[in-house]
Structure formats: C-alpha cells, structure tokens
Amino acid sequence: MSAALLQILLNGAASGGVYALVALGYTLIFSVLGVINFAQGALFSLGGYLTFLLMGGRIGVNGALPGWHLPVALPFWMALLLAAIGAGVVALLVERVAFAPLRRRGADPLLSLITSLGAGVVLVNLLQILMGAEGYAFPAGAAALEGLPEALLIGGARIRTVQVVLLLISAGAVAALTVWLERSRTGQAMRAVAEDPTAARLMGIHSGAIVRLAFLLSGMLAGLGGGLIGLSVSLAGPYFGISFGLKGLAVLVLGGLGSVPGAIAGGLLMGLAEALIPSAASGWRDALAFAVLFAVLVLRPSGLLGRRLQEKV
C-alpha cells in the first residue's frame, strides 16, 4: 500500500472516529424515541469543560468567577470519566425538562426538536456566562500522554498520537456499548423498545426507564467525546461542541437512523470521503457531507445499514 493511500485511510479513520462517536449519541435516543436530541452538541461542550474543571483548571478573566477552580486536581483519565458521568446526568435533566413532559401529554414527538434545541441554547449560554468565551487547554493535558511521541509514523504516513488514542477509546466505548446492547438484559430491553414500544410494554418492559437510560448513555458518550476532543484540540469556547453536532446529524442519516453499526460505518465513511477531497476543492468539503446525505436519503432512505424505512410521521 502506498504511503499516500495509507495517509488518506488514516486521516479518514481519525476524523471518522469522532463523527461516529457523535452520531452514536444521536442514535441511541433516536432508536428508542424516534426523535433527535439537538442538545447533543451542547452536551459535547459540557463534557469538555467538566473535564477541564475536574482537572483543577482555573476559570479565565471573562468568566463569572475569575480565577476560581475546584478544590481538586484529578488526573485526566479520572476527570474524563467523571465528566462523562456528569454530562450523562445533565442529559437526564434535559430528558426530564425537554422530552418527558411532551411524551406524558402525548404531544407530537417532533416538538422535541425545538425543546431540545432550547435546552442546548440554555446550556451553551450558561457555560459562556460561567467560563467566558476564551479557549482553554487542559491544565496537565500533555501529562495524559506522557512518554508518547507527538505523532506516529506508520508506513510513511503520519498521524498524531492523541488521535490514535482518541480513536482507540471511541472504538472501545462503541464496542462495549454494542456488546452490552446485544448481551445484557437491559440492552436487550432497550432494543425491544426500539423495535416495538407497544409490544415491549406488553412484555413488562418499563419504557420510561429505558428512555432515561438511553439519555444517560448518550450524554455520557457526548461527555466522553467532548473531553477527548478537548485533549486533542483544546476547548475553543462554549460553542465548540455545536459544530460537531451538525456533522453528526449527517452521519446519523448516512448510517441509517437508529442503527448502531450504521452510525459507526457512516462515521468512518464520512471521514474517508472528506479525506479523499483534493485540496483545491477543500472549500466544498462541508457540502460533500450533505450532498452524500442528500443522495443517500433520496436513493436509499433507510441509510446504508439501516432497517427498512418506518413511517414515523
């Protein structure tokens, strides 16, 4: 394999892994509720900032409490784990405020497009008031990968070490999730709800608990992603998670709404497609993602690996 080709594959995998992580957060919720949680991007930002604070990072001059910091300074991995749990808990809160009341009243589930977006706007702007708009680097970010070289040379192709780590952790989280969905009783119950909520209820599966679990998990995925991205590219202000949100949406559809393997394949495919664009046309890159999405929807509405299209109007 030529070095140039290998480089393209590596580039595609590196960005595709992140896309898959974002899309998976959407997927979990879509599979059980048939709706999209637009607060996902904000939860991404939240995960990054929580990791920063748990590592003992200080709030900058534009924040509400300049110079303030948590009385702890955890190592990166522990902070990341706690931040993921924190983002998961906030996702539960979002479910409670933006989704549950609509479900209880039997309102149109598509209303949650708007309520979840509102939740995202509130979250991002609270983050901005608390943390200010400035960028942050993790206080001991480099120490997390202590002893490793900055980049790896693989068969003449280069990739940043942090991205390999990011890819491995994403892959690990995704694999664990897949196994859990397949094997565990709760995972099977979740899939049952996704397949047919009514039948699941008849079988005695409490769908409210399953929905909350889906939110918790997808929030944790977002938190994990935000913390990892923070390690890779710093926290670029409270809006940084939002740009991942839109791309994740495209990947979600590309892979087939609600399909876990589809989200992973879609993410990698999207990463690869972007890596293949020649630099002269790189301005059109974002259009490519959505042109592919558009074509997939029109030609094969169920996505690449999705189930047969269901009517969810």
Partner: peptide, 22 residues
C-alpha cells in the same frame, strides 16, 4: 507549493496538513 483552504469552525487539520507536508 500548496494552498490549503480551511474553515473557521474546523479544529482537526489532519487532512490539509498531511496534504501540504507531502
């Protein structure tokens, strides 16, 4: 020898950088 276009919202530059470094 290489002109790379990026976007303000980008944060991962693996693609344009490896293209330019070639």
């Amino acid at each position: 020898v290489s002109v790379q276009r990026t976007q303000l919202a980008d944060n991962d530059f693996q693609n344009p950088i490896t293209a330019a470094l070639q």
